[in-house]
Each structure stands twice: as C-alpha cells, then as structure tokens.
Amino acid sequence: MVKRNLTVATTGLNNIDNPGPGIPFIRGVLDSQEFNTKIIGLAYENLEPGIYMHDLVNKTYHIPYPTAGSDVLLKRIEYINNIEKIDVLVPNFDAELYTFMKASADLEDIGIKTFLPTVEQYEERHKSNLPDFGDKYGVKVPKSKTIFSENEIESTMKDFRYPVFIKGKFYDATIAYNPEQARANVRKISAKWGFPIIIQENIAGTEVNVVALGDGEGTTVGAVAMRKLYITDKGKAWAGITLADENLIELTDKIISQTKWRGGMELELIKTPENEYYLIEINPRLPAWVYLSVGAGQNLPEALVKLALGENVKPFDKYEVGKLFIRYSYDLITDINEFEKLSLYAEL
C-alpha cells in the first residue's frame, strides 16, 4: 500500500516522570500503515524531551501559553502553518484544550483539522461538575464539592468523612487523612494551580482506567481497559496491563453514546469489591498510556487522525488482554547548539 503523506502537529512533548501524551500519540501515528507522517512538535518549554527526539519529531516550534489567549496562539499557528502546511493538529493538554476548541473554526479556515470535544462536552465533565454529570448520565460518581477559597474547607469537610481527595481543577490530586492535611493540601494545590479545588469522597476499591475514542455521534470507535500495576509518587502509571472487563467497556459505551463524545478521552474509575464502578474523572484527551492501546491492537492515535480528516473509521471490536506497558527513563544526549537554536529562534 502506498502511504499517504500527512503533516500532524501535536503538543505534550514533555515525556517526563509525569508525561504528556504527545510522544505516545506520535508513536501511534508513526506506526500507521496508511500514513507517511511528518510530525511537528508544538512546545511550551525548552526542555520538553520530545523536542530533541528527532526520530519521532521532525521539527518543533515554540507556542505561547494558553493564558496568552486564542489570538496570540492562532497567529503563531498561522506562522507555523505557512511553513509546514499542517493537515491535523492534536492538542494533548487539558489546560490548552479550551483555547484550541475556541480556535478550531479559525484553524479549519487555514486548512488545519482538529477532532476535539465540544465546549459543552468539555465543560460538563470537569471534575467540579462531576456530580451533575453523574446525575445526568446515570453514572455513579463519588460525592464531591468544589471550594473557591481556603475559608470554605472547614464547613465543607463537615459533609465528608476522612480520608478525602483534594484535587486541582486541571492537575494534581492528594489524599488527606485529617483536617491538618486537608488544609495543607488545599494550600499546596491552590498555590500551584489556583482555585477552584475539589474535595472528593474516597471510594475504596481498585482504580481502573479506560482510554477511548468517540466519533462525536455516539459511537465508540475504540476502548481499552487498563489497570495500573505500578504508580509513581505523582500517582501516574509507570506500568499497566490491559484487562478483560466487559462491564467497564459497556460503561464506556454508555458514556460515549449519551454524551456523543467527540475525540479521545480517558476514564478514571474505582471498581469496588462489590463490582460497582465509580467514575472519578474524565480526561478530555488521550492519556499518556495511549500507546498501550496501540500495542493491544487498537491504534487510537491513528484513528483520531483519520476522524479529524473526516474519514470513516470502522470501530474496533476487540483488543488483546494481558498486554503490559512498562515506562522507562532514558538519558537523551544532545548538543547545546540545539538548545541555543530553540532558545533564540523558537524552533528546532
């Protein structure tokens, strides 16, 4: 088969101990038998390791932080597009998604396709909106409350029993076993990510996760269930294994069909000893462990790109159970000249 040439731009090149999904996403796209893909990295920081992985990323450009606003971002993407002629752009960070969703029509105007959740889908699955989400779609969720200042901790905690989870709006989650820890954790997370902060009931059980892709019309294009086998001190999976769990896949189908989810997603759930599932989080993008889905027979990154191109994708109906991923660290050696080029010219 003659491979089609394609240029895909993506973020999340921070392949660190709390990795972004960029590199595993890219590996999936490069595994495609249909595309001959040029990868354009979009980076926020000079030391995102993916920038220097030239076997995976052909060229990288700095882009402005989401706080700079859509206009600034769009101008930068337009500049990059004039050089690279991007076909598909896949953002991978929760915090940047909103900006890209807002800019998607403008991106389309300059020939760049995206495949993102709608603003409504993105908003309603927010950690702070999870109780409403659970009610609306008939999914069990842990009790949670959102606080907007440190003063609300004491009154809010009257409705909870310790331990509780303290979660940032986008990132970070810690467990608190007493009021002192709750206060300290709220301070720590708010100092880093600001308010609101979510206080969430702790559900006893085993955490299970699903990476999935919705076509935007209610069909699950693919879904792979995984259990973390090794978790880092940041709560990230360092190893995991695919599971045969029909109930979990059914629940995923239910969520995708009801929400008509568009794009990649990660469901984080707790399976109780009574085999009940509590949805604790929906991440509105493919997760950093997405390459496990590729290894298990569902190339979701490739499917996402095809959906973005407006092509029909036949839904996957199976995956290999018992496939493991084990992350590793690796010292990439590069030259100061590379760092210099990126620092001075914002591209490499």
Partner: peptide
C-alpha cells in the same frame, strides 16, 4: 473464566490484571 493458568504455575486473572 477469566483466569488463565500456565503449566509453570503462573496464574493471570484477565479481569483484574
């Protein structure tokens, strides 16, 4: 049904991992 047992005595529960 979800448990696989190899001759070596290695047992894998595909439902829980």
């Amino acid at each position: 049904k979800k448990v696989a047992l190899s001759e070596t005595g290695f047992v894998f529960d595909a439902g829980t991992g």
